[in-house]
């Protein structure tokens, strides 16, 4: 079996990943992990105020404000086209904002692009590896862009190739890598300058499960060293596990902000009942379900009932003489928050 990212012996951080996962997937029990210092005590590394970006008439980012303290792992969630990548690009100073204020380590990326980016490691949504160079040269040359000396870069590149399990591909052409390997190389490349802030735009898209876990482990260890992580993802489990705090963005605006547990508490109920009636009947049956639970959501393939007590909600459904094809009671997750805040077909 190929393990895509190297897992160092004796790593304890993976256990932490799992601890945290169990903690936050329960709707009620999640609190900030005890070993993290309170956010107020740390200096702020990113502040955005009324950040706006328009393309023609389209407001890709429409006046969002947030700030990120050093060492925090901060997530941006939102549906396709919400403006997450655009926000990331503005932070990196590769897209100019239309209006608003933005400071990274106290610097404005528009006027101090090189200085700002000297602190950043970036994994863009789309890989932009140098297809004309070989795998290892990609790392070396990228490091040169930061003005780093070869004496530093050579061992560093080898270490990162090892981490990305690409050591035996060091001399291959980038073209010859698989999609997931390219992703791993892009991630390795983002670490070449030992950045203090990592911008990760859907970093795990296309990675196999092992690679994903090993990346998570690396990210946790970087966080322990005080690196700030800015992350977007469409995997809600990933967001729950990795992010201390997140914002849910839709149509360029912030819909909600908080820790995963907070968001679940505020925007969802403790439990959810999932019912499938067959594609034709889901919509028509919704009216007959009115009044059960606290809220009802009709998705194309199923109906969700948000309730404090799922079992009793399910009993009410049965007592009304409705027979779903399948039913399931589960804890609320970030996915429910996401659907609630950004869903297009809400029946409240």
């Amino acid at each position: 079996m190929e393990v895509p990212f190297h897992l160092p012996a004796g790593s304890t951080s993976l256990r932490r990943v799992h601890n945290k996962a169990t903690m936050s997937s329960g709707a009620t029990g999640a609190v900030q992990p005890a070993d993290e210092p309170p956010t107020e005590a740390r200096p702020t590394v990113i502040t955005a105020e009324n950040l706006t970006k328009t393309y023609g008439d389209v407001a890709a980012v429409d006046g969002i404000s947030f700030s990120v303290p050093a060492g925090e792992s901060f997530g941006l969630l939102g549906p396709n086209g919400a403006g997450k990548s655009t926000t990331m690009k503005m932070i990196g100073g590769v897209t100019r904002r239309t209006s608003g204020a933005l400071h990274i380590m106290g610097l404005d990326p528009d006027s101090h692009g090189p200085e700002v980016r000297a602190h950043l490691g970036v994994v863009p949504q789309q890989d932009n590896l140098d297809e004309e160079l070989r795998v290892r040269d990609n790392l070396l040359v990228y490091g040169r862009y930061f003005g780093l000396p070869m004496s530093y870069l050579k061992p560093k590149a080898d270490e990162l190739l090892e981490f990305a399990q690409l050591t035996d591909k060091a001399k291959s052409k980038v073209d010859a890598l698989s999609g997931g390997m390219k992703r791993r190389l892009t991630i390795a490349r983002s670490l070449i300058n030992e950045p203090r802030i990592l911008l990760l735009d859907e970093p795990t898209t296309g990675l196999d499960p092992q690679a994903r876990h090993i990346l998570w482990d690396r990210l946790f260890r970087l966080k322990e060293q005080g690196v700030t992580l800015i992350l977007t993802t469409h995997y809600m489990d990933e967001a729950e596990q990795l992010c201390d705090r997140l914002i849910v963005v839709d149509k360029g605006r912030i819909m909600a902000e908080g820790s995963p547990a907070q968001l679940i508490r505020e925007h969802s109920t403790r439990e959810v009942v999932e019912l499938r009636f067959g594609s034709e009947r889901n919509t028509t049956i919704a009216s007959e379900l009115q009044g059960i639970g606290e809220r009802l959501e009709v998705l194309p393939d199923r109906v969700l009932i948000y309730a404090h007590d799922g079992e009793s909600a399910l009993e009410q459904v049965a007592s009304r003489g409705l027979r779903p094809l399948t039913s399931l009671v589960r804890r609320s997750s970030l996915e429910d928050v996401f659907l609630r805040l950004t869903g297009r077909s809400l029946v409240d």
């Binding site: 090189p114 980016r117 000297a118 863009p124 862009y145 003005g147 300058n193």
Partner: peptide, 9 residues
């Protein structure tokens, strides 16, 4: 895009 995410201007 790759180059400009570094400290290059």
């Amino acid at each position: 895009q790759g180059m400009l995410y570094t400290s290059l201007g």
